[in-house]
Simulated scan of single mutants.
Amino acid sequence: MKRLCMAVMAICVLLSCSEKKEDTTLSGLKQSDFISEVDGKPTALYVLKNKNGAEACVTNYGGRLVSVMVPDKNGKMTDVVLGYDNIADYIASDGNFGALIGRYGNRIAQGKFTLDGVEYELPHNDNGHCLHGGPEGYHAVMWDAKQINGQSVELTRVSKDGEAGFPGNLDIKVTYTLTDDNAVDIKYEATTDKPTVVNLTNHSYFNLSGVPGSQILDQEIMINADKYTPVDDLLIPTSVIDPVENTLLDLRQPVAIGAHINESFDQLVKGGGYDMNWVLNTNGDINTLAAKAYSPISGIGLEVYTNEPGIQFYTGNFMSGQDKGKHGVLYLHRGAFCLETQHYPDSPNQPSFPSVVLRPGEKYMSHCIYKFIVNK
């Protein structure tokens, strides 16, 4: 009888360990910490794995990329995106760690635009302007999720006509795939029943060093762009497109992020660092490199590919240094960078910029690939 009790106890311990192991991701996240409910819908953490052992985790609250584990130069699996380790912290935060951004990523001047003779008023959440679709944009709503297979998850929602002031019922599908070449592939699709504007993106904060709570000033950046869209004091494009040549925004060759970030160049001063849109040379070719970042500490590189005409490079200038992220790590000022593939800021009010108008019968399609490589 005693032996039978001991055997039962041993089985219970093994089952407990097995459940615990299944609940914990490679990045140390517990799936149970992402089980909750928002607006009557259940939240969850979806785990994607590829044949190399890399891992990406996505939550359907805000469609957020929570962690990405890829190997460094020594083969050590390393988390390269910032975020939180539970759903409660995401809900409590007004930040955009890893989030899907919409209906319009980046800024719309004065929080309004006119389309087909009708003026639409949007939330004013950034110095009188509308930023990232307003305070209750797509980063702060629930998405319906379906895990297609072990490497892909599909997120869908209908953004109702009038939501945040935008016209038209927008039917959206976003698919995250962790590919076998260690890339996070993001495909966006949308249709509308009324003329509207659309500009979707992902707002992941990257730190490639593998050093939790570090800054990104020693990491290198290259952006394949001859031009950029200058901004005014409130970071709204001035409507002109200027060359990067002979400016500190010439990133066509790799440069350390911190090399010039504090210099008195007008655009860097206005942004408090890098925070502007580059006009890509890629002509919408998803196979042409748009940007590349690299950490000399970890040897991890990030290549960005997109069919979008622009990319916003942001260096965590508004990070306060007081935010505690995954595993209690304090995220410092300039503790990460973002590379947001996009149409240009304020395009609805800038007729010379590529159009962001979507009409009934048309399909919005945007594609972004964040590919992680190792330079040993």
Rank of each mutant, 00 (worst) to 15 (best):
K2D: 13
L4F: 15
L4W: 05
A7P: 02
V8R: 05
V8N: 11
A10G: 10
A10L: 15
I11M: 14
I11G: 10
L14V: 13
L15F: 14
S16A: 13
C17F: 07
K21P: 05
E22G: 01
D23R: 01
D23W: 01
T25F: 00
L26F: 00
S27P: 10
G28T: 01
G28W: 03
Q31W: 07
D33K: 10
F34N: 01
F34H: 12
E37S: 13
D39I: 00
D39K: 14
G40R: 09
K41L: 14
K41E: 10
K41V: 07
P42A: 06
P42D: 08
A44P: 01
V47K: 11
L48E: 09
K49G: 01
K51A: 13
G53I: 07
G53M: 06
A56F: 12
A56H: 15
A56K: 15
C57N: 14
C57G: 08
V58G: 14
T59S: 07
Y61M: 06
V66G: 03
S67T: 14
S67E: 08
S67Y: 07
S67R: 08
V68E: 09
V68L: 09
M69G: 08
V70I: 10
V70F: 03
P71D: 03
P71V: 07
D72S: 04
K73R: 15
K73W: 11
G75K: 13
G75P: 08
K76Y: 11
M77E: 02
T78R: 06
D79G: 04
D79E: 13
N86T: 03
N86E: 04
I87E: 11
I87P: 02
D89W: 02
G95Y: 11
N96D: 03
F97N: 05
G98T: 09
G98F: 10
G98H: 06
L100D: 01
L100R: 07
I101E: 05
Y104N: 08
G105N: 10
N106V: 05
N106A: 08
R107D: 06
I108C: 03
G111L: 13
K112I: 01
F113A: 03
L115D: 11
V118Y: 02
V118I: 12
V118H: 05
V118D: 14
N125A: 11
D126G: 03
H129M: 11
